[in-house]
């Protein structure tokens, strides 16, 4: 296990280095940000002083080297636009996205997996057909459109839920969270629902396909021959057998939603990192882009690591040191 962790750690460093090169070169290619940093009516002297101060006159590899050296001391630089340390900026926005993503992905899984299992267990029932129809909608209807419809229906017409924003937050572990206040929860509901529809559809399909296959397996037949009830078979046998792909997709969806929930965040004016990255791209806020993309890479490495640990917990055949 320790060997596995060390190996993964070294891999992670290598991956992060490669990512940092790709991101840095890519962002460098977007254009010179100097014009957004200084005011348009600055004199040529101020302009050149600023270019020198930011190091934009240096060749790419020296800029990258300086960036890496600063990184080693934990300094991702300052945002050109917000004029504050990039990490501080990102971490002030991250909790909003984190709670939105968690609510969406966890909700989609807790609801989608049981419904998908039911649809796989009784594929011809009317209820299963309804579930599958909803899942087709979840796949094919664009997220932004559903978001607008949700706002129109629940916020504008019915007036049950707020149309946007985070609402009041409460402090936990030194971070502001919406889900801790009653009103914050109502703000969270619509964007989470919007974000979860696609994931719900995916979980339904995954669970359904896995269940349909597992229900015909000898494992289930043998369990039935032993007199185990259908509920026991679904909960204890089938769920365990289909868990691996579900955990895989859970991890991937969690990572990508955390990084790119931008459409939903924009529609619901949710002050998360998705909005931040879009703003920083349009404003050429280089340090934010670089730090953010590296953070995303780091998140995916962590998620994959946790998913691998979950594999070992779920399937004894994948445990390190498992022998025949």
């Amino acid at each position: 296990m320790l060997g596995f962790v060390i190996q993964r750690f070294l891999q992670a460093i290598a991956v992060m280095l490669v990512i940092s090169v790709l991101v840095f070169v890519g962002v460098y290619g977007i254009g010179n940000p100097i014009d957004v940093v200084i005011s348009p009516d600055a004199t040529q002297q101020i302009r050149e002083a600023a270019i020198r101060a930011y190091g934009f006159d240096q060749p790419l590899w020296i800029q990258y080297r300086d960036f890496l050296l600063r990184l080693l001391s934990g300094d991702f630089g300052r945002s050109f636009i917000f004029n504050m340390p990039v990490l501080e900026l990102i971490f002030s926005r991250l909790p909003a996205t984190l709670e939105l993503t968690l609510a969406a992905v966890v909700g989609a899984t807790l609801l989608g997996v049981p419904l998908g299992m039911y649809a796989g267990y009784k594929p011809d029932s009317a209820f299963a057909r309804i579930v599958m129809t909803v899942s087709v909608l979840g796949f094919s209807v664009p997220t932004f459109w559903i978001g607008l419809v949700l706002i129109f229906a629940f916020a504008v017409q019915l007036g049950w839920l707020p149309a946007g924003g985070r609402g009041p937050t409460a402090m936990l572990f030194g971070v502001e969270w919406s889900f801790l206040t009653r009103e914050g929860l109502t703000h969270l509901l619509l964007p989470a629902l919007n974000l979860s529809l696609f994931k719900f559809a995916m979980m339904v399909r995954l669970a359904r396909a896995g269940t349909r296959e597992a229900i015909l397996s000898d494992v289930v037949r043998f369990a039935r021959a032993a007199g185990e009830s259908e509920t026991t078979i679904l909960r204890r046998h089938v769920l365990r057998l289909i868990a691996i792909p579900i955990v895989t997709v859970f991890g991937l969806e969690f990572g990508s939603t955390l990084a790119f929930a931008v459409v939903t965040e924009t529609i619901f004016s949710w002050p998360g990192v998705g909005k931040l990255i879009i703003d920083s791209i349009s404003l050429l806020d280089r340090p934010v882009m670089v730090a953010y993309l590296m953070l995303v890479a780091f998140l995916f490495i962590m998620i994959n690591f946790l998913v691998d640990i979950a594999y070992a917990a779920l399937d004894p055949r994948l445990r390190a040191g498992a022998k025949r």
Binding site: D218, V219, F222, A223, A225, G227, R236, D315, R317
Partner: peptide, 29 residues
């Protein structure tokens, strides 16, 4: 089933659940 009539299958490698321990499968039965 399991109480008065039981069944043993052809291929034990597919009949036992690969992700549950022997003890757990016997307790469930």
């Amino acid at each position: 089933r399991g109480k008065r009539i039981a069944m043993v299958f052809q291929d034990p490698s597919t009949a036992l659940n690969p992700v549950l321990s022997i003890g757990e499968q016997m307790r469930m039965a």
